[in-house]
Structure formats: C-alpha cells, structure tokens
C-alpha cells in the first residue's frame, strides 16, 4: 500500500489543505470571481458591439469586426494576456497604478468578447427574418428594429452559451498570474500554487481545483437545465381546443366588428 500513501500525501494532504483553505476563500475565490465577473461584463458589452458590427450592412463595420474576432479567437489566451499585460504595462501604470490586475481583466475581456461576439451574432442571425421585416413594415428604422425586437430575441436564445463562456472565463482567469500579482490580488490558482511550494505537495492545488469545480459544475448543470426548458417550453400542455370555438366567439362579437354583414 505504499503507492496509496504516496498518492494521499501528494494530492490529499488534509493538513496542507486545511491550511490553505482560509486564503483560498478570502483571497483566491474572491479575486477569481472579481476577475471573471469583470471580464465577463466587459466582454458582453464589447461582444455586443462586435456582433452588431459583424451583421451590419456596411462592410466598413463588418470587416473590422471579422478581423478582431479572428485575431482574439485565433491566438492562445496566454499569449494575448502576456502581450497586453506586459505591452501596455506602462500605459496602465499611469491610469490604474502599478498593479497588472486591471490589464489582466482587460486582456481576458478582449479574448472573451471575440467569442461572445460570435455567440451574439449567431443568436441574432437565427431570429426569423420576418421579425425584422415586420418592424420595418411598421416604419421602424433598422437600428430600432434591431434594438427593440431582433436583438432581445437573439440574446434570450444564447443565454446558455453565454453561461458556458463565463465558465471558460473562470478557468482562463488563472492565466492572469503570469502578469505577477500582489499577494492580496492572487486568484485561486496562484494561491494554491504558492501554498503547494510551501507544503511540498500538490494538495493545495487540488483544493484550488475543488474551488473551480464548485463554481463551474453547478453552472454547467444550470445551463443544461435552462437549455432544456428553453427547448421544451415551460408551459403545461393544454388540452386541444376546437377551432370552431373561435368561430363561435367571432360570430358572437358584433358583426360590424368582424366585418360580416349578416
């Protein structure tokens, strides 16, 4: 049973896990959530802009959106984070101070916005063409029909995909540690990593992993639940009603209202 003890000592050293727990909760979890939520919110706004540009009738808006998307979707996240985090460090220093934290959030949100833009674009384009036409036929401008009718329908459809994107951002937020964070700014992975060095085994990282799962697994299942509800509809099945009932109802209404003359 030697290998068993080795495994326990390496991955499940409960003492080391208990020691790192307060830091994971107070520093790591907090920062991971702050970074992920901030990057998601920024990414959703940017992504919406990219999506609207991407379906614009003007190629002067469409082409830049396409290039932006290809760029940030095509590069490894770690490369983008390093390029932005170190490349703009000086600029960031004059705006945000010495911490690379805000730049990390911005880099993550740029990456996320490329994906979110594609999600929104797909959602908006899946809305029946007749919706926009009905708006235009009523005299609404392109912008108004998009903003009031088409885009809201598109967004509702892609909510599950957006939650998936949030999960991806939570995981990618661990990459921000590459920029060198202050002790109080460390996210889950960095806290676990630092503690692992001290404890001499991987248990603190396992503990950090558990924290990630606590965030992501329930969300994944929430997505599936909502996805099913969207697909099957939440309404109770109603008994079928005869079309003749409606005819009776119409006949009962004033004949002038329905336009018949008997």
């Amino acid at each position: 049973m030697d290998w068993f003890n080795t495994i326990i000592r390496t991955f499940f050293d409960f003492k080391a896990m208990a020691e790192v727990l307060p830091q994971l909760l107070g520093v790591g979890l907090l920062n991971t959530l702050i970074i992920s939520l901030a990057a998601t919110i920024l990414g959703v706004f940017l992504g919406m802009v990219i999506a609207v540009m991407g379906i614009s009738p003007s190629k002067w808006l469409r082409v830049p959106a396409r290039i932006y998307t290809d760029l940030f979707r095509g590069l490894p996240a770690i490369l983008t984070i390093l390029l932005i985090g170190q490349g703009f460090a000086r600029l960031s220093q004059s705006v945000f101070g010495p911490s690379p934290y805000p730049l990390g959030i911005i880099a993550l949100s740029l990456i996320a916005s490329a994906y979110i833009g594609e999600i929104f674009r797909a959602g908006i384009q899946s809305v029946d063409k007749g919706q926009g036409e009905a708006c235009r036929a009523l005299g609404m401008s392109y912008a108004k029909s998009m903003a009031l009718v088409v885009i809201p329908q598109g967004i509702r459809r892609v909510l599950p995909a957006l939650v998936n994107q949030f999960i991806a951002i939570v995981k990618d937020s661990s990459l921000v540690y590459f920029l060198g964070l202050l002790v109080s700014e460390r996210e889950l992975f960095r806290v676990g990593q630092d503690a692992a060095v001290l404890s001499g085994n991987l248990s603190p990282l396992v503990m950090a992993g558990i924290f990630y799962l606590v965030i992501t697994v329930p969300l994944t299942h929430l997505v599936n639940y909502f996805d099913n509800r969207f697909r099957t509809g939440r309404r109770k099945p109603a008994p079928p009603t005869s079309g003749l009932k409606e005819v009776n109802e119409l006949d009962a209404a004033s004949p002038l209202i329905t336009g018949s003359n008997t």
């Binding site: 919706q131 009523l138 005299g139 609404m140 401008s141 809201p152 329908q153 509702r156």
Partner: peptide
C-alpha cells in the same frame, strides 16, 4: 421609414413579436 409608417402590411406568417403580448405587439410602433 416615413413611407412605411403610412402603409400597413400583413404577412402570410403573421410575424408577430413572440416575446410581446398582443397589446405590446400593437403598441410597439
């Protein structure tokens, strides 16, 4: 846009806004 506000159109597949009530469909424009 000004022209279309003066001309009503009714479509084969209704094209009502599914997330609006009947009243909101009529009131929107």
């Amino acid at each position: 846009d000004i022209l279309r506000a003066r001309i009503g159109m009714v479509f084969q597949h209704f094209n009502l806004f599914p997330d609006h009530t009947a009243l909101e469909n009529v009131a929107l424009a």
